[in-house]
Amino acid sequence: MANNEWLSEVRSMVGREYGRIYAWDEVNPAMVRQWCEVMGVENPLYTDPEYAVQTEFEGMVAPPAMLQAWCLEGLHMNNYPPGSTDENPYGVLKLIEAQGYPAVVAVNSELSFDRYVKMGERLYYTTRFADMGEEKTTGLGAGFFVTLIQTFYSEAPDKERLKGKEDEKVGELLFRVFKFKPAQRPKSEAKKDDQGQEEKKAEKPAIKRPKPGISDDTRFFWDGCEAGELRVQHCKCCDKLQHPPAPVCVHCQSFELDYKVASGKGELYSFVVMHYPVVPPFEHPNPIGLIQLDEGVRMPVGLTGVDPEALQNGEVKIGQRMQVEFQTFDDELTLPLFRPVDA
């Protein structure tokens, strides 16, 4: 690493604790009810006083998954209620940012609950800079995993504090982010040239089928798919077929090659059902077959109209008759898939 100094400085901050950040509002039924409405949570423990009074809480409580929401600053950034610390618990991220790691992505959120909180409780949290890993390179770019732990407390009301009651821990949040230098992406450069106009038109990044590498030797095959023909390479010298396409005949070494259009019929010679990893946009699990064409060559293909379980439990067997079916993906790529047919 070129500059270790700033790193050791940041690292020496591991373990540092930051002061309290208070909630603007005490735990209250209106905010809870709206949260439940948006989330679609229908638990009467949160919204029905008659139900809640019969539970061990003897009244309504807040959904535990809502814990963090109480202490967020709201519309105005860094505008925390009186009594909150002036320190910035995220200062460590700023320090890393200053070294050329501008982007951040949340990786883990781990909430744990010591108890549910009741209406009327006032919460605050403190933050601990728990960990920073070595520099790592991921698909997003190079950077650091930073772990912060927020501990949530319920403040003892003044009257009860006089009687010796202390603030009580109610939960904890372990929050891990990746602070990184984005890997270069050519597309974002293009966007900048266009004064942001391109960005406005940005669409959801559709995950597309990977495209084949097409060469002069294989183009006839892919053109055939577009034309709805299953084309198999054919040797004009020895009259034999071969697949996948090659620059030379594997039987007689001739360069005199053309193709024949196959019937698209064949049988299942072998198969595999891919379970791991999950690769969008492919089916999951993803059934892949090796088809013995009636013309004699074998072809690895995606299977369609096949329940992967039927393959695994033997309902669909080796030797099953199959028929080609051309399917077009993403409006740009036509592939030969095979579907089971009656013998």
Partner: peptide
């Protein structure tokens, strides 16, 4: 993320 947490609670809660 906080909405994701809410939806996770809904899924398990249901």
């Amino acid at each position: 993320i906080l909405t994701t947490n809410g939806l996770v609670e809904r899924f398990v809660g249901q």
